[in-house]
Design a binder for these strands. Structure first.
Lengths: 223, 223
DNA sequence: GAGTGAAGGTGTCATGCATACACTTATCCA
DNA sequence: TGGATAAGTGTATGCATGACACCTTCACTC
């Protein structure tokens, strides 16, 4: 057991995960419908208590797995803020270390876990009412995501291995929640030298698009 | 008491403060010499346990006050990362919410508090050996400080109400740990429109310098 | 096989911002 | 009055950004 000064706070330590993906062109956030009090029947970010002997990021990955059956690679996870206000949880002093997660393409299907009734994706910019202070957490997560977009190659993490430039632009637009100029976007991204044409093209409706993949040297993930 | 799932971790909740000032042209970090085990006789960041019913930022301000007799305004404090690795504290699972603090001009004198033997300023880029994982915390704090410099008017918080442009440049150089071009610096800062000449000048050795103050509308502090 | 619909792809100009770079001016003091 | 010291000043260049409109390629259908 811990030997601490008598007036020191013993707190419950939790993690929450704001996990994002892009689906049908809109930024979506992963939410679970709580099955237990407090806030039963309310949507919330995946999360829960850190177990004894468990690192913070491990707890975040485990909760994501248990509550939504999503297996995330550690490099797509980043701690971004700790919420510890006194009244934030009716059960007592619970501090939550909030994490940002980026879900690469293909991780969309989710299932509910033991303690949750459902898990599903919601438009991140217009979420339903959320439990605890999770609306605040989600808002901050989106801001952080937008910041990261600027100086990381974050958008690539949302896409499969090969992708077209319009698809990449859609990712940026979904995260920033505004539209971008096609020509300027292409100019900027191609100038960064992080994309290499794969030579292939993708056909659909309209003119086929050139496929790209990330260049050799491009670091990926949130860290 | 907390009613939590049985396997949930009860942890000690602490705060640490990486507090910076500029003195003699170098960025300095505030350290305390620990009087108690663990790590007695070792320098460490000011910090300690959060008390029952105390908010995180209040705890940070209190520890700073108790250990170094420095009274800091809340807006000069910003939470920046939470350190919770399992082995970081030999007493058990202790999670520390680290804060960044900017000490405005004139706050330099410090005294030791009850649980500390000394408190003093050390060059932030070359600190002495530190207790716990505080070297890691300090390093991350400096990086955050440098990031903030870019898009906040953070440097003004290190200076008194009126100051000269060379003084402001010194603050930037101390934080970035490199020298800057005088003409470009002046151009950039004056173009931002955040400075207004006070009309006065300051004499010393060499040509007297124009004194400036922050413009009316300039938001200050870390938030 | 010609026409239409749908999406991909392309170039230029203006503006602002960062960078590199060297000499003059004001004051103090011996 | 001359020397030491620090403040102050301007220009040219390259680069990134933002605004803006038309052409190309393919699939499908008639």
């Amino acid at each position: 057991m811990l030997k601490l000064p008598p007036q020191a706070t013993q707190v419950g330590l939790a993690v929450d995960v704001a996990a994002f993906t892009i689906h049908e062109g809109v930024l979506r956030s992963l939410l679970t419908l709580r099955g237990r009090v407090p806030h039963a029947q309310t949507w919330a970010l995946p999360g829960g208590f850190v177990l004894v002997g468990e690192e913070l990021h491990e707890a975040a990955l485990r909760e994501l797995r248990d509550e939504t059956s999503i297996e995330l690679e550690p490099r797509h996870l980043e701690q971004f803020f700790t919420f510890g206000a006194i009244g934030r949880d009716p059960r007592g002093r619970i501090v939550s270390v909030a994490h940002l997660a980026v879900l690469p393409h293909g991780t969309v299907p989710v299932m509910a876990g033991a303690s949750t009734l459902h898990a599903d994706w919601f438009p991140a910019h217009q979420p339903p009412p959320l439990a605890f202070d999770h609306a605040l957490i989600l808002g901050r997560a989106i801001k952080r995501l937008q910041l990261r977009l600027e100086y990381a190659n974050l958008a690539l993490d949302f896409l499969p291995e090969t992708f077209t430039l319009p698809e990449l632009q859609n990712v940026h637009e979904a995260i920033l929640n505004r539209s971008l100029d096609k020509r300027n976007f292409r100019k900027r991204l191609l100038a960064q030298g992080i994309l290499t044409p794969s030579g292939e093209r993708r056909s659909g409706v309209g003119r086929p698009a050139q496929l790209y993949r990330r260049a050799r040297s491009v670091r990926t993930g949130l860290l």
